[in-house]
Design a protein around this nucleic acid. Structure first.
Length: 670
DNA sequence: CAGGTAGACTTTTTT
DNA sequence: AGTCTACCTG
């Protein structure tokens, strides 16, 4: 308790009622939460299994678990829940799925699955030419606001909303038929369950006696309701948040939940944490000045006693290529000059697409890097294929998985066959999988094709039995051999090297599955659960982290950087149309972009560098860029602008090259 | 039925 | 510029 300042101590010790901690960037909010969990267990007699701490990302949950773990003895932390909202929802559904009408082994649809399903529904049921993404977003926001399909249809005003509502009805029905849930359902379904079943609610309230919520400003309506339901009369909870770091309004987050708390819980106590332990005074000054351009519900003034520090550098670059080159070279030289590990440096950007060029330049200069985030792994074909196999094994109703898997590898079952199977299955209200071995099929298909379908089903049936046996991993490995998957990959890869990479991805996935099953202490986790968690990225990220603990420059989006800190931070592409993003300017939500910039700036401990390009290639066309308005909003006296002189390209290149040569010479000597 | 090609379309951010 | 889609051909 001694390292905490008085405000932080107050936040830890106040347990008699609802508490809101308004924690500015770098004010030690994670310490408060972790210390509070320890305090509850060690000083207040709470049992670990009665405490639930919720975060938004797996990363944050992992880190929190680790930090709490170091404060507690093994037995003390037994049964403690530290998880994401989605994982908490999944746990509730796992235990109560029967009440909700789902069978064990239900599938979870990720973004891509969801989008594909919606596209399919729109093609089948609705000829309109509304974009899938818009429809998806509408449905998503309804789900976040707990609006059911029928309600949505009732209150739909515009034609687009009506279309979306109709699609929503079909979508939800299809998901149910597939015994599947999407990400939003992981929150929505538990809320409905608790609302409709008082006895279940009572059970969970009894189980969860103290709740802590991190990044509370990111909660949406359904998440807040879930919290409210679970804590209700006891109202023993702590939420920590910062309205200036609300950057998820686009996916339904409601920062006004912070204010709502005051009305919903009149006895709410508020503690403000305003001392920053992370950044130099100059960096904080810039951050404060920038965010002052936004309206505020809570006014807080961050301060720091870490010294004033260096100026913030703004680098103007010729184009996006020069920008990435410059950052790579600078980090390389800094690393060598100051002997700082590469992991002290972070490169932040608005969109994942910006990472590509940057990656390339780092590779050219042999700078190691770690790229976090990005959906790349799960969107890979081979990963999707294997995931579909896993899903189908565990959940035979999952027609989506069936269709993905049926011809991987080729089983000579074409679209006409599938069409007929589908018609038959729909008539009989069977899943495609169940229908595959039905005798009645022979009325619609020749024996050649019914045999192929039946063979597939029988194979999968046998495989399923082995998967639920004592060595599921061995069964899966065998399956890969049976279907000659490696060969299939080879055939579908441009080179042997690419094929090897993809085979490694498959093994990586299997390995992750294996580790989770082995690690599971109480033997409670079934293969179904493990697969469900895979979709939530949970154990996969953990696996990744273990795989490469090597030193490297950290690359990630501004969104992904929230909650982290680095001695030296580069934010690239600080331009109009990028940060703030074009769509935010059009939708008039620049305030959120400003908060995003604020988040980025406050990640830096000592050094902050902002870069932008004069020209940039977009969709294959070169366009002129304008420096971001946020640059104008920063205090001029704290900025140093570089690259304004139009030195000929050759001079700069020569300069960079000779500097590099010096360094290389230095390196080879010692 | 599969493999190839031209043309459209693309980029926000995440569980 | 790269990726996905729809149509065409073998």
């Amino acid at each position: 308790m001694s390292q905490l300042n008085p405000r932080q101590q107050e936040a830890v010790r106040y347990i008699s009622g609802p508490l809101l901690v308004l924690a500015g960037a770098g004010s030690g909010k994670t310490s408060v939460i972790t210390r509070k969990i320890a305090y509850l267990i060690q000083q207040c007699g709470f049992q670990a299994r009665h405490i639930v701490a919720v975060t938004f990302t797996n990363k944050a949950a992992r880190e929190m678990k680790e930090r709490v773990g170091s404060l507690l003895r093994g037995a003390e932390k037994h049964g403690l829940t530290v998880s994401t909202f989605h994982n908490l929802g999944l746990n509730i559904i796992r235990r109560e799925h029967k009440l909700l009408g789902y069978k064990a082994g239900f599938s979870i649809f990720d973004d891509v699955d969801t989008k594909n399903l919606l596209t399919e529904i729109m093609q089948k049921e609705y000829a309109g030419d509304d974009g899938v993404d818009e429809i998806r977003q509408l449905i998503g926001s309804w789900k976040n606001d707990l609006i059911m399909p029928e309600q949505a249809l009732e209150q739909a005003r515009t034609p687009k909303e009506q279309t979306a509502a109709v699609v929503y009805i079909h979508y939800q029905r299809t998901l149910k038929a597939y015994n599947a849930l999407d990400f939003d359902d992981l929150i929505l379904q538990p809320v409905k369950l608790l609302q409709d079943n008082p006895d279940v609610l009572e059970k969970w309230r009894n189980r969860i006696r103290y709740m802590l919520v991190d990044e509370y400003q990111d909660t949406n309506a359904s998440q807040y309701l879930l919290v409210k339901l679970l804590v209700k009369e006891r109202a023993q909870f702590t939420v920590v948040g910062d309205d200036d770091q609300s950057i998820y309004a686009w996916r339904g987050a409601r920062p006004e939940n912070l204010e709502l708390l005051k009305t919903d819980f009149p006895s709410l106590k508020v503690v403000m944490l305003e001392q920053n332990y992370r950044s130099t005074g100059r960096i904080l000054k810039c951050a404060n000045t920038l965010i002052a351009n936004n309206p505020h519900a809570f006014t807080k003034q961050l301060w720091s006693d870490m010294g004033f520090g260096d100026e913030i550098r703004v680098l103007r670059c010729r184009n996006e290529d020069a920008e990435a080159e410059r950052i790579a070279l600078e980090i390389l030289t800094e690393h060598i000059r100051t002997d700082r590990p590469y992991s002290d440096f972070a490169i932040l950007y608005r969109g994942n697409y910006q990472a590509k060029l940057m990656e390339l330049k780092l590779q050219v200069h042999k700078v190691p890097y770690r790229l976090s985030g990005g959906t790349s792994f799960f969107s890979r074909q081979e990963v999707k294929d294997l995931m579909a196999y896993l899903r189908l094994l565990v959940n035979p109703d999952d027609d989506n998985a069936y269709l993905r898997v049926i011809n991987v590898p080729r089983r000579e079952i074409g679209s006409t066959t599938l069409e007929k199977l589908s018609v038959y299955a729909t008539q009989r209200e069977l899943s495609l999988y169940e229908a595959s071995a039905e005798l009645g099929l022979s009325e619609h298909l020749s024996s050649r094709f019914t045999e192929r379908l039946a063979r597939f089903k029988h194979y999968m049936d046998k495989l399923r039995q082995r998967c639920f046996g004592d060595d599921p991993i061995a069964a899966l490995q065998e399956m890969l051999l049976d279907i000659d998957y490696n060969n299939w990959i080879r055939q579908n890869s441009s080179s042997e090297k690419a094929a090897e990479y993809r085979m490694a991805n498959v093994q990586f996935l299997i390995e992750a599955l294996k580790n989770t099953l082995e690690r599971d202490e109480d033997g409670e986790l079934t293969i179904e659960d493990a697969i469900a968690k895979l979709v939530l990225r949970d154990m996969l990220e953990r696996q990744e982290e273990e795989a490469d603990g090597a030193d490297g420059v950290q690359m990630m989006t501004l969104h992904a950087s929230k909650g982290l800190e680095f001695p030296s931070v580069y934010i690239m592409g600080v331009e109009e149309e990028i940060l703030p993003h074009r769509s935010s300017i059009e939708a008039d939500t620049v305030e959120e972009e400003r908060r995003l910039a604020y988040v980025g700036i406050t990640r830096a401990r000592e050094k902050l560098t902002l870069t932008y390009a004069n020209k940039r290639k977009q969709y294959g066309e070169v366009i002129d860029c304008t420096p971001s308005r946020f640059l104008d909003e920063l205090p001029k006296e704290d900025l140093i602008w570089e690259g304004l002189d139009e030195a000929p390209k050759e001079v700069k290149q020569a300069r960079a090259a000779s500097a590099l040569a010096d360094i290389r010479a230095m390196l080879s000597k010692g």
